[in-house]
Amino acid sequence: MSEVRTTNVEVRLPSRMGFEKVAMSTAASVAKLMGFREDRIEDLKTAVAEACINAIEHGNRLNEKLSVGVVLSAGEDSLEVKVIDDGTGMKKQPAKPDIDRKMHGEEDARGMGMFLIQALVDEAEWVSGVDGKSSYVRLVIRLDKDQG
């Protein structure tokens, strides 16, 4: 049985808006090294940015004493990204935004981050940490067999 090699890269972000771009750039660099197509890298950048924004804003509630952990695990044919915060985690799965309801004021104009994450990567799961801490979102994006 052949051993699957995984390479890990870790970044810690302050809980301050804007620093999601550091994780976004790091994820893009790792994905580029792995050979992902440019359009998939763009998908990953948006998904990672939105996951970090949720962690900063909702998980750590903009408390700059807390940091957001981003762990990228590059396997042979996929990249897994875990974004970890000190919140209690998401209680429900993301709903698809309804633009008509938003336009008519029946739904908040915001609240699209989780939907975008789920729509742009191959796997997305939200995991609540034990004791209501160290919750994380886990994203996976896979290399297409036909991309070189």
Partner: peptide, 19 residues
């Protein structure tokens, strides 16, 4: 170069006012 979900929400708010 960069638009996030909060930025998209601002565009939607603009569209609501315009409509």
């Amino acid at each position: 170069d960069y638009i996030n979900s909060s930025g998209i929400a601002l565009v939607i708010q603009l569209l609501i006012e315009a409509a």
